[in-house]
Amino acid sequence: MKGLYCRAGLSDAEPKFVIQEASLPDVIGTHQVRIQVKACGLSPLDLKVLESSQNVYVHDSAVYMTKQYDVMSYPRLPFPGILPLDSPFSGLCDVIDVDEHYLVQKPEKLSSVCAVGALRDGLCAYTALHTHARMAAGHTLLVMDGASPFGLMCIQLACYHGVKVLTTSHSPQKHTFLQQLRPNVQDPLVARVIPVDNGSSDLLPVVMEETGGLGVDIVIDSGVRLQEEEESEEAKLLPHKHDIISVLGVGGHWVTSHQDLQLDPPDCRLLFLKSASVSFLNPEVWTASSAQQGRYLRILPNQIQSVCLAPICPSRPEPEEAVPRYEATVAMETVQLHQKKKAVVQL
């Protein structure tokens, strides 16, 4: 059988993705099950995380592509699961061995393609809102780039738990899409959509207007600007770190996915005065750390159920058809270069 693997490039060169032959062991390990892969979701591979982890699986100068999110069948029942960093199998193999503790039963009304498209983003959203921010009914949440798959999952989970949601939009099309999100005819899903594509800095005054000058309880970003002047157009759409701290209320929580965040003394002083906190969102920590295995086994079933109970379909706002396996290499390269948010391969 064949699977998708990553060959890390030299120095700063981009990694190469190739289809290679793979084989199963003759004996299944303890607490493992042999399952057939039906579909696989692809996400960017963070080589820095792999290099820093002691659980990296390296063989013949190839780093195994294990950061894939699979929907698998075991026997006759569909089970979504996430392969850990030390898994020797590619998620695009026809049949793989995986620990039974990494699987959870898929609800009937959630399709396989929809499950793989939402599993990683749903886990990240659940971790950010419940584990880091301690979300509760009555809180106010600001989600940056709410039209992204991760931002949309945050909005769905927050609204399901009675949280008031504000979000930003990066284009007129995304702004219209977010305004039209409604769980029913009368109530909008998002209380306020703040456009940031016009270069204006209306984030702080709009947030203060919506919160009565108190600020929000939770901010979740998808990247931040460390400097006021950024060259790329994409970076200009990201909020500046000082703006995020400014919109936080007293006792607020800022959950960031920016790995190299640097806070200056004035930023730390403002966080201290607000008694606010900063948390780093690393979704790989659940499968990389055995000390967190118990919490992960509780979070994964809760997250997959929350996807079903969310007020809107998790495949939006970027519904895409699953691609065949012979297009997996091209699809993974576009995802790795961040030209595409996600991709689903159907076997």
Rank of each mutant, 00 (worst) to 15 (best):
V255R: 05
D60T: 00
S232K: 07
P314L: 08
V250Y: 10
D145P: 00
E284K: 10
Y5I: 12
V165F: 01
K2A: 05
L157Q: 02
A158Q: 06
E231T: 10
V345S: 01
Y69D: 07
S52C: 10
E228K: 11
L24H: 08
Q105L: 11
P317W: 04
S169Q: 01
P75N: 14
P317S: 08
E228H: 13
A288T: 07
Y126M: 04
W254H: 08
R76M: 06
R134C: 06
D86I: 03
L4H: 01
A118E: 01
A115F: 00
P324E: 05
G223E: 09
R76G: 12
V185N: 07
V250A: 10
L300W: 08
H253L: 07
D264P: 04
D267L: 14
Q293A: 14
Q54G: 15
V345N: 01
E234G: 08
P265L: 13
R192Y: 02
R120E: 13
P149I: 00
H258K: 12
S87E: 06
P301Y: 05
L181G: 01
A147H: 02
A310N: 04
Y64C: 14
I35Q: 08
F79V: 07
P75H: 12
L92A: 05
E108S: 09
V56I: 05
E284C: 09
I28C: 14
L85R: 13
A115W: 00
V190F: 02
L103K: 02
V196E: 01
W286M: 07
T140D: 02
K342A: 06
Q36K: 15
P15D: 02
L157R: 02
V307F: 03
S90I: 11
G9M: 06
S171E: 06
D217N: 10
A276S: 15
A310Y: 03
A8N: 11
M332D: 04
D60Q: 12
Q336N: 05
S289E: 05
M72A: 11
V185S: 14
H258M: 14
V49H: 13
P75R: 09
S200Q: 15
S277H: 13
E51G: 11
V219M: 03
S279I: 04
P172I: 06
F272S: 14
N55W: 04
S11V: 11
D264G: 07
I312R: 13
G29R: 01
Q339L: 07
I220F: 04
L204E: 15
S222W: 00
H161P: 00
W254T: 09
P311A: 06
E233F: 02
L142F: 10
L238F: 15
L103H: 06
C154V: 01
L83H: 03
C6E: 00
I82R: 03
A235N: 12
T287C: 02
Y102W: 12
Y5E: 10
D260H: 15
T30Q: 03
D121C: 11
P265R: 07
A13E: 09
R134V: 04
V63K: 08
L214Y: 02
P80M: 03
A291W: 01
M153K: 03
G138T: 04
Q36M: 12
Q180D: 07
P88E: 11
E209K: 07
F17A: 04
G294T: 11
L110F: 03
H253R: 15
Y69F: 09
F89V: 13
A133M: 04
D99E: 13
V37G: 06
L271F: 14
Q173R: 13
